[in-house]
Each structure stands twice: as C-alpha cells, then as structure tokens.
C-alpha cells in the first residue's frame, strides 16, 4: 500500500457569530505536528487563518486546540498519529467564547482563576527571613503535585461540568486554589475556602477525571478538588465556615 502524501485538514473558521469547517489539503511530512500543518495552511493557503502559538516545543500551552474532539497541545501532537481515514478535524477549545477561527477568549478562564482564590496572600515581606519550608513535608508535596499548571485551558475545555454549569470555577482554577491552601506562607486560607465552597465551587466536581486524562503536564485536578472538598467539609464541621 502506498503511503498517503496528503491529509485533509478540516479547520473551523468563524467568530462569535458562528462558523464552520473548511477543508484544506496539507502535504504529509515526517515528524510533522498539527501546529506545523496549521502554520503551513496559514503561510501557503489562507493568510487570514487566526490561531495562537508561542514556544512550539511543548512548554507554554498556547497552541491548545480541539483535535478530533479532544483538547490537546498541537505542537505536541504528531499529525500522523491523529489522521483518521485521511482526515483531521481541528477546532478552537470548547467552553470558551471564540474570537476568531482557532483563537478563544480566555477572560472567563482567568476570571475564575481569581474567583477561586488563586492569588497568593503574602504574610511576610522581603525584609523578613526566607520561610523554611521542607520540600518533603506533607503539605509541600501536595502543593508541588499541582503547581506545574501553566493555564493552557485543556482541562477547562475538557470538563463536562464546566460545559453544564456556567458558574463552575473549573479544574485549573480549583487546582491552583488547592496548591495555595497547602502553601504554608499563604495567609488567605479562610477566604479561599469560602470562595471554593459556594454554588460554583469544588463540590460540583463529579470526578470524571477527563482533566487528569488530558492534562499535558500529567496533573490531576480531580484529586486537588477532592482535597478542597475535604478541607471545606472539615471547616464546616468545625464551625469555621
């Protein structure tokens, strides 16, 4: 059987008012990523195609898109791995409003980051001694398990609760909140637990673990959220909330 020389890329074009899939024939090359292919389309076929990327080497998370129905980093997805019957479908991330083509508006994503108490509350200044945190302490290990998040939005895009419940803060924001709950230097615990205990908070997570399955950094927001569930439940039972 001869090797295919081309693939049909069906790319979503449009904006907030609507759009649809447009077909582009892209030559198949060795070691070619989906981002390479989208870039090829923009340079050779359609200069008006809008998309985001930055490092293109799997570190920044900017190139996240929906490929064949799954959110992933396109610079870390080989085209040959996702071609099915000679075609690939590329669309913008879900659960976020589209600006144009493959670029989404991340305002609500970062807004929820803040609403979930994602901001570190300092209890010391640069004039104080450096906090002596043991890296192998239980809380530091819990925090370390979640701090590699680079806000790429893949988990948020995959989460069905985000899809079904507009107020839900989402896996990334709650994961971040949990790392700060475990940061001994942070002084905002009470406010943060209150922030994640409301109608859009951690208790809406159903532990599907789609976030954990798809996170490119292999984080598990579901477990962070379980930690928040325990922390808030304990706070209520102790009368602190």
């Amino acid at each position: 059987m001869s090797q295919a020389k081309e693939a049909d890329l069906h790319v979503w074009r449009g904006d907030g008012n609507g759009g649809g899939l447009v077909r582009y024939a892209v030559p198949l090359r060795d070691s070619q990523t989906v981002l390479d292919a989208v870039t090829w389309i923009q340079r050779r076929l359609e200069p008006g195609l809008s998309f985001r990327f930055a490092c293109r080497v799997g570190m920044c998370g900017t190139c996240a898109m929906t490929v064949n129905g799954k959110p992933r980093w396109t610079c870390r997805t080989r085209l040959k791995d996702v071609v099915e019957n000679g075609r690939v479908v590329i669309a913008p991330l879900e659960n976020l409003p589209v600006i144009k083509d493959l670029a989404c508006d991340f305002s609500s994503f970062f807004g929820k980051w803040g609403k979930a108490g994602g901001r570190f509350a300092a209890t010391a200044t640069r004039l104080d001694a450096v906090a002596a945190i043991r890296p192998d302490s239980r809380r530091r290990r819990l925090a370390d398990a979640g701090i590699e998040c680079i806000n790429c939005g893949v988990c948020y895009s995959a989460c069905d609760v985000v899809r079904w419940n507009p107020a839900y803060l989402g896996p990334a924001a709650l994961n971040r909140s949990w790392t700060l709950v475990n940061d001994e230097r942070d002084g905002g615990r009470e406010k943060r637990l209150r922030a994640v205990a409301g109608a859009g908070g951690c208790h809406n997570c159903h532990s599907h673990q789609g976030c954990a399955t798809l996170c490119p950094n292999e984080l598990n927001p579901t477990l962070s959220i379980a930690g928040l569930k325990r922390a808030t439940a304990l706070a209520v039972l102790k009368g602190e909330m």
């Binding site: 208790h203 439940a233 706070a235």
Partner: peptide
C-alpha cells in the same frame, strides 16, 4: 449546583 452544605448532606 451545590455548595458545601448540600454536598455534606449528600455524602452523609
């Protein structure tokens, strides 16, 4: 669409 109290009632 539940907060901590309804969640606790559900789990208990």
């Amino acid at each position: 669409m539940i907060g901590v109290r309804l969640y606790l009632a559900q789990r208990l």
